[in-house]
Each structure stands twice: as C-alpha cells, then as structure tokens.
C-alpha cells in the first residue's frame, strides 16, 4: 500500500512537471506517435527520426509507440498526453484510419500542428469531423502494384497467383490488396485465393501450406509484408516447390539473403527510416509559419530485386 501511494505521488508529480517543461523549452517540441515499436519497420523509423533530431538540432523529439499494431487505445492516450503537454506538433502514424480522427481534431483545435504519415486517415471520417489534414506517406497501393507487376512480368499472362493479406480492417492492408489486384487485372493473372495471415510468419506458413494443398497449380504468391513472405518461402522449401515465385513488401533486413538467392523475387522499400523524418520536416515548416500542407505528399518507394538488393 505504501509503495503504491509513493508510486502514485511520483507519477502525479511527473505528470504535473511535464507540461510547463515542454512549453518552456525554446525549441519546438514534436510529438511522434508510432504504431508499434515492436518491429523492425517502426524501429528503423524511430531510429531515423532520432538521428534526424540530432542532425537538425533545432527541435525536441518525444516519441511514443504501442505494444502492437492494433492497440488503438494507447495511441489515443498518447495523443491526449501530447495535447496536455502542449507540444507544438504531433506527427502520427495512425493505428486506425477512423478511430484516430477525433483525438487529432482535438489536437488541431488546441492549435497543434498535426501531420499524418505512414497510413492515411480515412477521407470520409475527416470530412465528417470537419478537418482537413494532409498526408505524408508512401503509396501502398502503388507499391503493391509495382511488386505485383514484377511478379506478373515473370509469370506472364494467365499465371495463377494467391494473395496473403495483412490485418483485415487495416488501411495499409486494404491498399496493398488493391494494388495486388490492380497488377493482377493488368497482367491478366488468375487469382486463385486471397486470405489473411495477420502479417505473421507462422500463420502465413500454415495458411499458405494449406492453400498450396487446395491449389497445387499456384505459380506466384503476393504477400502483403515480408514477414509473411518468409513464412511462405519456408513452406515452399518444405514442399520442394522452387518453381513458385514470391513477392513481398517492406524490404526488412531478414529478406536480403532471400532476395539474393532468388527465393524472394521482389519486395518494396518504403524507406521507413526516412518517412518519420520527412514528416517531421514538413511539420516544422508549418510550425515555423510555412503554408499549410495539402493533399498527399508522396514519399519515395523503390522496387528491390536481385539487381539492387543490399
């Protein structure tokens, strides 16, 4: 009991001390809200942002993340804490493209510059809330189409493919699926099945093994992220099917050897480490009195194959 009292006193005093500290700093404070600090992609992104803070040296970075990609609530709390602390800008990769609109409106009403990156907020939800917010980020649909086209080119028209989707309901998962479908339509591929493996290696391994049993004539696989592509490639190794081609998304370090020895035909690099830094730059321009951001500020994406893998 004594411990808890002591702990809560400390917690309260810390909470009380924070807002004045943030306001008193002469450098602008940027609150970075990440989706998850628990995977390579966001980890690189955070490190990129931290390096950027050191390099620029003219702002203070406060970063928060969540335990997993679907933990909306801690993200919501994070945004509210930043509002209370009175940060100058919030740069956010929303966990949910609709749920985060309301707290961000609150932040904008409080005079905070908000920049949305990585995953775009839902257009309709923004309209309903009466806010106009630009998006800094990659074209997930375009990237998926690009890597899907690489597969289509390698298979030729009539190639039989399956898709492994990300989390149902997640906007980037939906966008990537649409991009794959664009490539399938244009390349005249034949889509046999499309299922979610929730971004997970082990689940992708199991789900894909079963899809392969149902459709032994599969020629190509489009995985919405590299973690799932790794699970697919393991399943192909076990089944002894080196004839089936796989493409992924994200270019995580673990796939570099797979791209080199041809087991992964292609993946897409979204330059995650630069993405948060780019968004922070944009936010600071606005904080310094620059014009309001509008529409979609697209960030760089690149197709990674055997020829350019590092």
């Amino acid at each position: 009991m004594k411990f808890f009292t002591a702990a809560s006193i400390i917690a309260l005093s810390v909470a009380a001390a924070l807002p004045p500290a943030a306001v008193a700093a002469d450098k602008p404070v940027v609150g970075l809200v990440m989706k998850s600090l628990a995977n390579d992609f966001f980890k690189n992104m955070l490190e990129g942002a931290e390096a950027h803070e050191k390099k620029r040296g003219d702002y203070e970075l406060k970063a928060i993340g969540m335990q997993n990609e679907t933990d909306f609530e801690s993200q919501l709390n994070g945004v509210e804490n930043f509002i209370t602390q009175g940060v100058d800008a919030i740069v956010i990769a929303p966990a949910d493209s609709r749920a985060m609109v309301t707290p961000l409106k609150k932040a904008m009403d409080a005079g905070i510059t908000v920049v949305n990156f990585d995953v775009s907020l839902d257009e309709q939800a923004k309209k309903d809330a009466g806010i106009d917010l630009a998006f800094v980020g990659p074209d997930n649909r375009g990237g998926a189409k690009m890597v899907g086209e690489a597969l289509a080119k390698s298979l030729g028209a009539g190639g039989k493919v399956v898709i492994l989707e990300g989390n149902p309901g997640a906007d980037n998962a939906a966008q990537r699926k649409l991009g794959f479908e664009d490539a399938i339509a244009e390349g005249k591929l034949d889509l046999l099945d499309s299922r979610t493996a929730h971004w997970e290696t082990e689940e992708a391994n199991s789900v894909f093994s079963t899809m392969l049993t149902a459709h032994p004539d599969i020629q190509g696989v489009m995985a919405a992220n590299d973690s799932m592509a790794i699970g697919v490639i393991k399943a192909l190794d076990v089944a002894g099917r080196s004839d089936i081609k796989v493409v992924g998304f994200d270019n995580v370090p673990a796939v570099a050897p797979l791209v080199k020895d041809g087991k992964l035909l292609a993946t897409v690099d979204q330059f995650g480490s630069q993405m948060a830094a780019d968004a922070i730059d944009k936010a600071l321009e606005v904080v310094a009195g620059g014009p309001k951001l509008e529409g979609w500020v697209k960030t760089n994406i690149e197709l990674v194959t055997k020829d350019n893998v590092k």
Binding site: A38, N39, N68, T201, E202, N205, I230, G231, K234, A254
Partner: peptide, 14 residues
C-alpha cells in the same frame, strides 16, 4: 518454431 521458420522475432507468439 525457430527450426521451422528460420527466424526468431520478439513479436512472435502473440
């Protein structure tokens, strides 16, 4: 798990 999938990640097993 590691022998099967050839990776060990801190986010497996959720």
């Amino acid at each position: 798990y590691m022998a099967r999938l050839n990776i060990a990640s801190p986010i497996i097993g959720i």
